[in-house]
Each structure stands twice: as structure tokens, then as C-alpha cells.
Design a protein around this nucleic acid. Structure first.
Length: 424
RNA sequence: GGAGAGAUGGCUGAGUGGUCGAAAGCGCUCCCCUGCUAAGGGAGUAUACCUCAAAAGGGUAUCGAGGGUUCGAAUCCCUCUCUCUCCGCCA
């Protein structure tokens, strides 16, 4: 959520940001300001009444201590219906506070000035492209190649669990494991701390990163124990520091965390979900940063470079998109997508999304830092995939496919695959 | 899963109805003294919110969470969560 003082002082800026993000109805801002004013008034009333009540209680205590029972009794009478009035005001204050909060949650993050204004994905800016776009006719889509080799078993996945839960076998399993290790090792060498995190989180955590209330349907739930299966490592990793205060000198704090991810992906059908394009369970290595506000845009470039470097080293053709305001989501202030080329499908596949949230997440999660002067400030959070496995697998299976039907091993992975040159 | 004990500030740990946001010690910060190490003295040291142009100051809330009793709750009652010990089970 945004800083309420920004909304109060620059409501037009916030409204313009909403419009740029494709939200034409900006009335929530006015409703929020109105509710906020009412809430503050209510807090003032409540606080002064409580103050009065506390003073009386204190006086009674003193009189009792001095043995002046009758005088104390008189003051007790004075309190009268104060208790009932406080209770009433508390109800009002609570209602206003809650509606103020839920209104705050409905105001999107403000895009950074460097973000192009646009409404659809057409207006994303392709900022960089690397490698040739293979168009060879003989290149098979990854699902055909993996079926021929028995590397990925979608059918048995359906039998055992359901659609979108494939089995990886032999070389494919090994390749995936090699990629995970390569990604993590690379991140460690670039200053990230490796973390292994829970795959189930509680409701507070799901709320902390904003999965609930609005993106509830994205997650699988474990109702009996009131857990949510994580849709991304971002959820446990970001919540790791929920309600905490860093020292300024500790920043930046960088984590790399591999986890499986579960997403219900309700309503996705057709070619989008073919093969490895979109799964209900997939593996991902996630990069998360907690940084000083002054450095967050530099850190976004660092993060993006950390992810992008992996693709480059794998020798894959890819491109980098700077997302326009309309296509970048509610919580981000700036976002890059990295997409690899799928020659078997003749389309781009998103493998990483690197975002700066500024203080949007940190405020909601109450993650702050103490400046060297002792003040407490909101810090900035960023995260990005580094990288998502299935689509990287797909790109490798297609870009490194040989006419023989075997798979050439990318140079950087040889060490992770016992020096093998080819798979298959 | 069963039985018992517990949850207090950065840490240890007092506090069983009133002047307690909370003793004391440790840690940390600043100052003084001393001056090779060590030791000693003083002051300060939670978070959120409201108020204030800002700072200062003031107010409110928070002693695991939520509710209740009371003029008044860290302290009494209820519910929940978590931790520890023993037993069981297990990788």
C-alpha cells in the first residue's frame, strides 16, 4: 500500500497513476481521503475520552492508597457512562479503521517516471534482444522431444495428481536439477544468501505479500490446517522479515531461494498451457532484495542483470521488456520481463519478472530500517525470478535440439552434468 | 497424539488489581574519569497511531493473540496460538 501522506498531499498524482495502470475509476481515492478524515476525527475523540477516563482511574487509585474511600467513591460515580461511551467510540473507530485500510489496499502503486505509459502489452518496450531467432522447421516443440525420449510424463502426472503436474525422468530430471544448482550457485557468487523456506504459509503471510484478499484464487489451500501452498518463494522469503526493523548498515539484504511453486491458474486453457508453458506445479529460483530507498532503482538494474546474466550464459536467445504502466500489475512501480525464444512454438516465453515495489510491500508488511541517525523509515523491496525452470527447460529443449533428436548440453551446465556433451 | 509447565522490552528476569511502558542486571549509544590491557562514574536506550508546518511537547494503544470482569488488568476469567519437559510416533 501507498503512504497515506502521499495520497493526502498529492491525490491527483495517485489518480493519474491509477489511470495509467488502466483503472479508470479513481473514486476510491476520494472515498479513502473522506474515510481517513473521519477515522482521524474518531481517533481523536476516542483518545481524549480514554485520557479522561485514565486520569479518573488514576485519581481513584491515589485516593484509595491514601485511605480516602469516600472521595474515591465520589470519583467513581463521576465516571458514569464513560465506559459505555468509550466502547461505542471504539466500535466506530474500528469500523472506520478497517474500511480505511481496505480502501488503502485498493490503491495501486505509482509507476516510476521512467516507465512508459501504455494500456496493453503491445506498448511494452523491448529494451534489449540477444541471439538469433531459430526458425528451423525440423525443431520439434519441447513436448514432442520429451515424449520421444520419455523425459517428461504428462499423462502419468494426470493419473497421479492432475493436469499440470508432470513427472520429469532421467536426463530431464537431471537437467532441471543442474539448472537449479547453477542458478543458486551463480546467485551466491553475486552476493545473495541462500535460503530454504517453507512451502506452506499461514494466513498472515499470505496477507503480508498481498495474495489475500485479492489473489486468493491463485493459491492451493490446505483448509484443515489453514495453510496456503506458496505460489512463489516471494511469499515466505518476504515474510521472513515481516514486522522487523533493519539497521541501515545491514542493507542491502539479498536472498536466493529455490522452491516449487503451486498455482491454480484457473481459466487458462489452450496453447498457453501446452507442454511446459504453464503448470500447476513448477520449480523456480527466486531472488529477493531488501534495500535502502535511495538505491532501489540501481538495485533493480542489478537484480535484472543477475537474472539476465543466467540466460545469457546459458546461450539462449532472449529479449528484455520494460513493462508499460498498463501491463505491469498492481503492486509494482517498475518491472522488467525477460523472455526466451521458443523455436518449436515460434513464440516468446516469460522466464523472469524483475520488479521494484518501492515501499509498497514493505509498508504492508511493516519491514523498516533504522537510519544511522536513529529514525525509522520504510525500506524498498524487489524481487525477480532467477529463473523459472519449466520455460527455461522448454527453451533449452528447443534451442539446443540437434537434428539427431539429441540435446546439446549448454556449456555452463556441463560441470553439473558430469561433463556430458549431449543428452539422449 | 497424551500429560504437565510456560509466554513480560535487544537479551536475562522481577512484578498476582491502582501512581507499571513496566524493577534489576546484561547489551548498546553518548559523555566524564582513567589511560598499554582492565576497571570506574553519569545520562540515554521499544513500537504503532493521533496532535503539531516541522522539531519539541502532549495524547492513545501495546507485557503471545482475541474476548470478558472492573472506575482501573502484565496481574482475575474464557477462547485460541505458540514454546518447553516427559511419554508415544517418526525421517
Amino acid at each position: 500500500m501507498l503512504d497515506i501522506t502521499v495520497i493526502k498531499q498529492q491525490p491527483d498524482l495517485v489518480k493519474q497513476a491509477m489511470k495509467n495502470k488502466g483503472e479508470a475509476d479513481t473514486s476510491v481515492v476520494d472515498t479513502l481521503l473522506d474515510t481517513d478524515a473521519k477515522w482521524r476525527e474518531s481517533v481523536q475523540n476516542l483518545d481524549s475520552l480514554r485520557s479522561e477516563s485514565n486520569a479518573k482511574a488514576k485519581m481513584i487509585g491515589q485516593l484509595m492508597g491514601q485511605g480516602k474511600k469516600e472521595e474515591a467513591q465520589a470519583v467513581i460515580k463521576e465516571t458514569g457512562d464513560m465506559k459505555a461511551r468509550i466502547k461505542e467510540l471504539e466500535e466506530t473507530e474500528k469500523e472506520l479503521r478497517q474500511s480505511r485500510f481496505s480502501l488503502m489496499l485498493r490503491v495501486p502503486n505509482i509507476p516510476h517516471e521512467s516507465v512508459p505509459v501504455g494500456t496493453t502489452e503491445e506498448e511494452n518496450v523491448e529494451a534489449f534482444r540477444h541471439g538469433v531467432l531459430l526458425k528451423e522447421e525440423w525443431i520439434k516443440p519441447h513436448w514432442e522431444l520429451t515424449e520421444e525420449h520419455g523425459w517428461i510424463d504428462f499423462e502419468r502426472g494426470v493419473k497421479v495428481t492432475g493436469a499440470g503436474f508432470p513427472f520429469y525422468l532421467g536426463a530431464a530430471a537431471r537437467l532441471q536439477r543442474a539448472l537449479i544448482n547453477y542458478f543458486i550457485d551463480k546467485a551466491i557468487s553475486r552476493g545473495y544468501t541462500e535460503m530454504m523456506a517453507p512451502y506452506l504459509v499461514n494466513e498472515d503471510s499470505a496477507r503480508g505479500t498481498g495474495q489475500i484478499p485479492d489473489k486468493e484464487d491463485m493459491m492451493y489451500t490446505v483448509p484443515r490446517d489453514e495453510f496456503f501452498m506458496i505460489p512463489t518463494a516471494e511469499v515466505p522469503v518476504s515474510n521472513f522479515h515481516r514486522d522487523e526493523i533493519f539497521e541501515e548498515k545491514q542493507l542491502p539484504v539479498n536472498y536466493v531461494c529455490y522452491t516449487p511453486c503451486w498455482r491454480r491458474e484457473a481459466g487458462s486453457y489452450g496453447k498457453d498451457v501446452r507442454g511446459l508453458n504453464r503448470l500447476h506445479q513448477f520449480d523456480k529460483v527466486e531472488l529477493v532484495k531488501f534495500v535502502h530507498p535511495d538505491t532501489s532503482y540501481q538495485e533493480l538494474e542489478n537484480l535484472r542483470e543477475d537474472a539476465e546474466h543466467l540466460i545469457k550464459e546459458l546461450g539462449l536467445s532472449y529479449r528484455r521488456l520494460l513493462m508499460c504502466t498498463g501491463d505491469m500489475g498492481f503492486t509494482q512501480s517498475k518491472k522488467y520481463d525477460l523472455e526466451v525464444w521458443s523455436p518449436g512454438q515460434q513464440r516468446w516465453l516469460e522466464v523472469s519478472s524483475c520488479s521494484n515495489f518501492e515501499g509498497f510491500q514493505a509498508r504492508r508488511m511493516m519491514v523498516r530500517y533504522r537510519t544511522n541517525d536513529g529514525d525509522i523509515e520504510t525500506l524498498h523491496t524487489l524481487n525477480g525470478s532467477g529463473l523459472a525452470l519449466p520455460r527455461i527447460m522448454a527453451a533449452i529443449l528447443e534451442q539446443y535440439q540437434l537434428p539427431s533428436g539429441k540435446l546439446k548440453v549448454p556449456e555452463v551446465l556441463k560441470g553439473y552434468l558430469g561433463g556430458l556433451e549431449e543428452l539422449g
